[in-house]
Design a protein around this nucleic acid. Sequence first.
RNA 1: GGGCGCGUGGCCUAGCCCGGAUAUGGCACCAGCCUCCUAAGCUGUGAAUCGGGGGUUCAAAUCCCUUCGCGCCCGCCA
Length: 567
Amino acid sequence: MELKAQAVSILKDAIQKIGFGVKDSELYFETSSHADLASRAAFRLASLHRQNPTYIASRIVSAVKIPDGSYIEEVDSSGPYINFHAGRHYLNRTIATILEEKKKFGCGAQKNTIILEHTSANPNGSLHVGHIRNSIIGDTLARILKRAGYNVEVQYYVNDMGRQIAVVSWACEHFELDRSKKPDAAIADIYIKANTELNKNSEYVTEIDVLMKNVEAGDIKTIERFDKAVALAIAGIKATLLRLNVAHDKFVNESRFLKSGAVKDIIERIKATGRTKIDNGAVVVNLSDYGFEKTLVIQRSNGTSLYTTRDLAYHEWKIEQADRVIDVLGADHKLISGQLRATLNAIGIKEPEIVIFEFVSLPEGSMSTRSGQFISADDLFDRVIEAALKQVNTRRPETSDDFKKEVSEMVGIGAVRYDIVKVSPEKSTVFNWKAALDFEKQGAPYIQYSYARACSILKKAKEDATWEFSFETNPSLLVEDSEINLIKKMAMFDHIIYLGALELKPHVLAIYARELADAFNQFYHFIPVISAEDEKVKAARLALVDCARIVLANSLDTLGIAAPESM
RNA sequence: GGGCGCGUGGCCUAGCCCGGAUAUGGCACCAGCCUCCUAAGCUGUGAAUCGGGGGUUCAAAUCCCUUCGCGCCCGCCA
């Protein structure tokens, strides 16, 4: 990050010196295999001033003045490109900073407050592999934002009074809950049964309507029944999320906004904008000036509120407590979240930032809790951990059962998290058991393995009685290609965090972590550390290994993936 | 029918917002590497009409138009 800031300043000075003006956004910096940082500014200036870009680039380069102590060692041009090369000072500073900051390396300055909502699956059953894409993207995003310096509170919005919950509550009255099962799975079973009954018998549907009316009217008995069903499902969902290493700071019930009068209040304010009309007894909002053909229903003809209405109140409540509000939502929420934003805007409330991810489907079609067509997250975890255990058994047969269990959980869950977070959210995916259970690829285990290797070297070095740790580390002795590549890759960590936080794209960190592991594995292969010929070189390399261990650990931590010291 | 997203070697995928140096990486395939810090590793080979067609530009995977395929949405569900 600091490297880029210095390059920007050097380039701007040089461009000014040759008599051109340029905005920061016109410097066109990019990473390149030809340099540590490259600029395409000459192309821009060429079209602006009708001159040959190569000529401009060479003029800029000859006007470049590198200040003393700069991270940049050399600036040259290659055709129209202006290439910046980092120097020794940059490499040494990187090593020193990592050793000094350790876990804090890559953290940004203190920033403002964010409330981030993710998962928020209806408590009508278990989390399935579609939901956990939401959880993993949301949780990773929260971790990235925290490292970037934001104060992040993570929330789960609990639908505790919608139609689907009424169905669950109804199901609890009509079917026996299987107490031997995990509570969310037991709820899913009766929810599926109830839906089949409901489809067969329309009388039952009116029973559901009555339940919903009662809840809205504040009927204590019905509310208690709803609460009981919701609590069971949420307990199971929390347990599943815990296995995934995902935790929420707050679970916010929808019903509180009805009880508090916030829902009623917000409906009145929307009415006051003059956008509403009564359509067949229901209150609808006209958002055509925001580009929405369809009106948004905020109150049913029977007077009850909808999910959307309560969600409006929830968002107002959130933005009162934070500077930014971020929601991670599935692609099915695209339209409704756009309408929600428009409505909030219409009544002068700051809109949330929405992160949309596309669907995970099964080879036989899309997943559905209602029809029972889904692969539960717990099933996936069980099978993936089992597959990991097989691997540990063949690779480390000499280790204890506890070790094997611990490592297979770290590897299995890590693999799930990585596989999901590595692909950009806008890509829809098809779940595939074979791919999910396959560890023979550059996924989480690859990164974890690199970390374990680094730990192993450091452990061996410490065990070596003849070796003194008192040697001063001189990073200038790290001159091999693979050493320099590794240092440069580590130096980019803060920029990756910044980028991920700026664009709200967690997959950039996943890709970075794999590249970092790549750089470390290459170093590991080519450069001896413990058996290094020279004691001072050995000390410098051990410091480098320690740095790699730290940055790999920080990357894994930000990805929410466990880092095993041995595997 | 309308709206949004996606389409990159056999399979998965980066890059697209902000057009520029030989299009990223993996899986699978093939060929090497363990008397040496964990081979869940390293090195190398082959494999691509960037869905198709137009356009803008000195320059298009990237921008615009069009067309095809896939997904999602278009409920007084969430």
